[in-house]
Design a protein around this nucleic acid. Structure first.
Lengths: 134, 134
DNA sequence: GGGAAACTCAAGCAATCACTTGACCATCCG
DNA sequence: CGGATGGTCAAGTGATTGCTTGAGTTTCCC
């Protein structure tokens, strides 16, 4: 089986390619055969099949062969996994910034020595790289 | 500069590696020097620097050198870009399914002969592939 | 000044990637 | 049947990745 980290490896790796993102966008609109997916692309059918295998291994696409036609469709759980990872990190970062902002906005009556930060970790923090988001 | 597709290439590729995702998770908790980031990792400092360069090129991390220390921090815009792409595709897929479900739930007076089972059969769906066949 | 800390740079190497081509197999249809 | 359609498989190729080592460079501190 594959644990969560391996799954994220596969999902992000699969999406790190324009052709594969294009296949996903096409499949969002509905299922399609391999040939249909390959038709507008400037590469061989075999190459498209390989891209589809990457997407299928990542769990982003599932496919089923009926007769001689393989029909592919989106399986959105893997996309949700990637989205969830990103969302959690972004909110984690925002929460940390909020906490920092609260410290600055309401200093309360703190000791004038301003040592609200960690005591035994190397105290390098907000002042250096916390500029305006570019 | 870099267009949106190139940016997504870089963001997803940067996140498609466990070590780099680990660096992101560490930096979510606050800025850190290169040496601090490298200390718990089972690889050389130079390797960690290379990972950080990948993250910085993707816009996920920014860094600033002060004295001999380079301090790294999260720059969350790139994470938001990746999250936005995933979110848009997932909702696109869900909307399409909803539309399909509405068709099934309120059949109205469909033309006879074609039943709702058409959704499950490999019969391809509303649109065919667009784009200019070469 | 001198040594250590914290990178920085370049070269090299094995593995993986994104393709290609060519041969092959299965299915449909006239 | 026989040919076209749709796909599969394997091998090969050039580029990129993830890492190493070793040799600098800059800054800090005694």
């Amino acid at each position: 089986m594959l644990n969560e980290e391996e799954r994220l490896d596969l999902v992000f790796r699969a999406l790190a390619d324009r052709t594969r993102r294009g296949l996903v966008e096409r499949l969002i609109r509905g299922p399609a055969s391999v040939s249909d997916l390959a038709a507008p692309l400037p590469m061989s059918l075999a190459a498209v099949v390989q891209h589809l295998q990457v997407l299928e291994t990542a769990g982003i696409v599932r496919s089923e062969k009926v007769g001689r036609v393989r029909t592919c469709a989106i399986a959105p759980d893997a996309l949700r996994a990637g989205e969830g990872w990103l969302s959690a990190r972004r909110t984690g970062w925002e929460n940390r910034l909020d906490a920092l902002g609260a410290l600055v906005d309401s200093p309360g009556r703190r000791s004038p020595g301003q040592d609200t930060r960690a005591r035994d970790t190397p105290a390098r923090e907000p002042d250096t790289v916390e500029g305006t988001p570019s």
